[in-house]
Design a protein around this nucleic acid. Structure first.
Length: 729
DNA sequence: ATATAGAATCTTTTT
DNA sequence: GATTCTATAT
């Protein structure tokens, strides 16, 4: 068979990985070295050259987005639908296994999945039930404890407290939480993996079946696997399957979530005779950017060692801008984006990357002020919005009356007079009888043990759920959603919230019906085989929290955290807020391990840039509303080679004498000097309404020429010269 | 039972 | 600064 189409677009190393023999393989792939490409080509190679059946291949990624992208690219390379190929996240694959083998796993057939919000709420409930002081035992900490234990594969009985009262209490909470989950038939994200692992371990027949099936296992982003994922991988691989892992230890940025770089280092021990291939040729960034990134990451210890190179030439130097404060930083960044666009670039080619979400606001303000479209990634996802969760709670109750989290959520939304008091007595009964809230509520009604008012309200609620369940039977998914919204009057409940907010809520609820329709329409999705459409949709809502329904495409500036940016690339990248305490973050500064992770984060950020990288930091910054935070430049700046950096200083004078000396260095004033502008930087002017001020900056020419003026009373503003009628003072 | 005002708390994010 | 939880008043 002619295999040239699989190999001829690859370099030597890539080819070596793709066409390697049937054995274990570890591909250490640097940023921008074509790692996804190699993974996809390997799948095609296995199918077309090694004659492997797609049924015998399992490919694991870390996000649903990556999984979808990979399936698409694999199918186009194979030139056929990759039916039978298992491709998904660890969680998605575990979910599929548990749905098929719910009996063996000891779960109810229609078990529901808790998202992290639901999980924390349940932990909180449990702490209350155990009559512990919530201030002393925060739900957040307990949830973290439970998840990290599960990620180590540990059940309460496996944890030795060694007489430590803290651990003992945590184990108590873990244990009670577990009981509560089992009783309600719900499982959290970590449980999805742990339960799968345990089920396969104890059922030899089941394991043998999957050993038989999966001959080839491919793992993307291998550096991000946590303990339980790695254990699952080893178990599934058994002695016979070949594991093909792709990863980059320098891009491991999820240690705080339990990911362990050690897994890369252990790979060759656990998977014997593994071949190791390094991909070091970078096809993304210019030489200068790579050299700077290499120099930075060299400060980390215990690396596997890798040096990126390119034959694309040096490119421009990395620019650095020292801003006065965060507003100045944003102003600078946005003006450079504007410049980029004026020179023929598009906005979507520009990315503003920051350490923490809170930093986005200043940039947004500045972008709005200049009427420049932008898109912020991250934040609340579609299926995490309150109104969507309310609606889904009803849908879950229809399918699964014993789901306490949904009961709690739906019972008084919209408000129908069932408050804490009533719920407390229902909870007491549930606790006493060890049953679900729904069953307990049923008992309350039967025994007539509530006040007349609460009695009728609770009965009304239960009848409502029953009647919706009845009415909705046999309907297509989207009509079910619509009927539920109609019966519950959820939309009307948001009316009193204020026009704008309630409007978006209603739109979101409409969008939910649309999402249901699209989901049912294209649910040839093998992951949800054998489930009712409603249950499939509900699982989908939890497992894929909805980043896929991106906004209508618009040419917009991209704003996101460094974590979100992993795997992406942009021609122009701004790396902002490089200050000690912010990046590296204060909470990571004292621990060497965490500091190295911050450095990797910086490395990830820098290597997103294709053509131009601009780094900025501010001398003072408003943080948490407190104003006078004077910031030192980040240590990462000192770790970059001086000769690759070029300082950009603002062509302007400031009032701030403290920094005047710093800024007196000669600057290129070309943007002002080349046009016959009526004003000069630093000149005093007066405006009819805003009073007197000083010109800080200018841009544009002719009718569009604008000046930035710092007014004594109003602060700084951008004005169009043609309209502002400024007078020189 | 609910509305509203003060207090507390702030990384990073997928599943 | 902005959100989210807690205590208090209605």
């Amino acid at each position: 068979m002619d295999v040239s189409h699989l190999l001829n677009q690859l370099n030597d190393k890539q080819r070596q990985a793709v066409s390697g023999p049937l054995s274990h393989m570890l591909v250490l792939a640097g940023a921008g070295s074509g790692k996804t490409r190699v993974l996809i080509h390997r799948i095609a190679w296995l199918v077309q050259v090694e004659q492997a059946s797609p049924f015998s291949i399992l490919a694991v990624t870390f996000t649903n987005k990556a999984a979808g992208e990979m399936r698409g690219r694999a199918e186009s390379l194979l030139n056929m639908p990759a039916a039978g190929l298992w491709l998904g996240t660890f969680h998605g694959i575990s979910h599929r296994l548990l749905r098929t083998h719910w009996k063996e796993a000891g779960l109810p057939q229609n078990f529901q999945i808790l998202d992290s919000q639901d999980q924390q709420r349940l932990v909180k409930r449990v702490i209350k039930t155990l009559e512990l002081d919530e201030a002393q035992w925060p739900a957040k900490q307990a949830t973290w404890f439970i998840n990290s234990q599960k990620e180590e594969g540990k059940r309460p009985q496996h944890i030795a407290d060694n007489g430590d009262p803290f651990t003992r209490q945590m184990v108590r909470i873990y244990s009670a939480y577990e009981q509560s989950c089992q009783q309600q038939g719900v499982i959290d994200f970590a449980e999805l993996l742990l339960r799968t692992l345990e089920t396969l371990k104890k059922d030899a027949n089941l394991l043998a079946h999957y050993h038989q099936r999966f001959q080839h296992i491919l793992v993307d982003e291998f550096q991000d696997t946590n303990g339980i994922q790695y254990a699952l991988l080893r178990l599934l691989a058994g002695k016979k399957a070949f594991v093909f892992a792709v990863g980059d230890d320098d891009q491991s940025i999820y240690g705080w979530r339990g990911a362990k770089i050690e897994h890369i280092q252990q790979f060759s021990q656990h998977f014997t005779n593994a071949e190791v291939v390094r991909l070091e040729q970078n096809y993304r960034s210019t030489g200068n950017i790579l050299e700077a990134a290499n120099t930075l990451i060299a400060n980390n210890e215990g690396r596997l060692g890798k040096e990126l190179w390119t034959d694309a030439g040096n490119g421009e130097k990395i620019n650095r801008y020292i801003a006065f404060d965060e507003r100045d930083e944003a102003r600078f960044v946005v003006s450079r984006v504007q410049q980029w666009v004026e020179q023929g670039g598009s906005r979507s080619e520009c990315a503003i990357l920051y350490r923490s979400n809170a930093q986005s606001r200043t940039f947004e303000e500045q972008l709005i002020a200049r009427a420049m479209p932008y898109r912020v990634y991250g934040g609340l996802r579609f299926f995490e919005r309150a109104e969507i969760k309310d609606a889904l709670a009803y849908m879950r109750l229809i399918s699964h009356r014993d789901d306490n989290a949904s009961f709690e959520r739906a019972v008084n939304q919209p408000t129908r007079g069932i408050g804490e008091r009533t719920m407390d007595s229902v909870r007491d009964i549930a606790k006493a009888l060890n049953c679900s809230l729904w069953q307990a509520a049923q008992k309350c009604i039967d025994q007539n043990s509530l006040s007349a008012r609460a009695h009728s309200a609770l009965k009304g609620f239960m009848l409502l759920v029953e009647s919706i369940a009845q009415k909705v039977e046999g309907m297509p998914l989207d009509e079910k959603v619509a009927a539920m919204l109609d019966a519950t009057q959820l939309k009307e409940a948001y009316n009193k919230e204020g026009a704008e907010k309630s409007q978006t809520r209603k739109e979101n609820l409409d969008e939910l019906a649309t999402a249901a329709k699209t989901f049912e329409y294209d649910s040839d999705n093998a992951d949800y085989e054998g489930m009712s459409p409603l249950d499939a949709f509900l699982s989908h809502a939890v497992l894929e929290s909805g980043e896929s329904q991106a906004d209508a495409w618009e040419d917009a500036v991209q704003l996101m955290t460094l974590h979100t940016a992993k795997g992406l690339e942009f021609p122009l990248v701004f790396l902002v807020g490089l200050e000690e305490g912010l990046f590296p973050h204060q909470m990571s500064i004292d621990e060497p391990g965490r500091l190295e992770e911050e450095r990797r984060l910086c490395y990830v950020g820098m290597t997103r840039a294709r053509e131009k990288l601009i780094i900025s930091h501010a001398e003072s910054r408003r943080l948490y509303g407190r104003s006078d935070n004077y910031c030192l430049p980040s240590r990462f700046l000192d770790e970059l080679p001086k000769e690759l950096l070029e300082d950009i200083r603002p062509p302007r004078q400031t009032f701030n004498t403290q920094y005047d000396a710093y800024r007196q260095a000669p600057v290129a004033k070309k943007s002002i000097a080349d046009s016959s502008q009526p004003f000069n930087i630093g000149q005093s002017v007066s405006h009819a309404k805003f009073g007197e001020g000083v010109v800080l900056n200018m841009e544009g020419s002719g009718d569009h020429a604008r000046v930035e003026v710092n007014f004594e009373s109003e602060g700084s503003k951008w004005l169009v010269i043609a309209y502002a009628n400024l007078q020189a003072v």
